[in-house]
Amino acid sequence: MLNILWPIFIIISIIYAFFSGNIENINDAIFSSTEDAVNLTITLLGMTCLWSGIVEIASNTVIIKYLSMLLNPIVKFLFPKVKKGGKAYDNIIMNIIANILGLGNAATPLGLQAMTELQKENKEKSKLSNEMMMLIVLNTASLQIIPTTVIAIRTSLGSSEPTKIIFPVWISTFCAGFVAIFMTKLIIKIEENKK
């Protein structure tokens, strides 16, 4: 995917900038974007270590068992092949919980940890497994109950009702999530039928 998108982004941007006289901005963007990448990596490094450690504790306690009981029907439907009680299962559950609670900083590290575990059971190592596809799609669906960042921005801009967007957000998220899951299941079905 990125083998096609990445060069397209770069080539059309630079050529367009040449013709529109934006080449100076482009030059600045090269420096600032690599710096942004470093800053984000440093933030992620700390967060990933912290949450990988915290989940390791959680999966040794009964907490993970309660959460598994609670989420098992959903996880079973979305990830039929992931074994209950395994490391991948625990990380998927914690990833979902972090997403729902709006802990974006924790959700990504936990999701990546789950990917690492899923890769161990993946038969074709260079291709996403069905479970990996579902996990990624779930994480592109923005499951959080309270969209805190947007509410904060609305408050700072002097909205009379900063929180009135919550209900419409739920409906949009639900519809988008439904489409995401449905499409993923469809892609898996189509590819399996081809074999």
């Binding site: 990445w6 974007s33 942004d36 990448a37 990933t48 990988s52």
Partner: peptide, 29 residues
């Protein structure tokens, strides 16, 4: 658990650089 976090982050760093540069170019052009 925390030790696993280091490896994961290092693995995604090149992706972040590549992606951020491409998107930075796209925005600024």
């Amino acid at each position: 658990g925390a030790r696993d976090g280091i490896e994961i982050t290092i693995k995604i760093f090149p992706t972040l650089v590549g992606l951020f540069v491409a998107i930075g170019l796209l925005r600024s052009s």
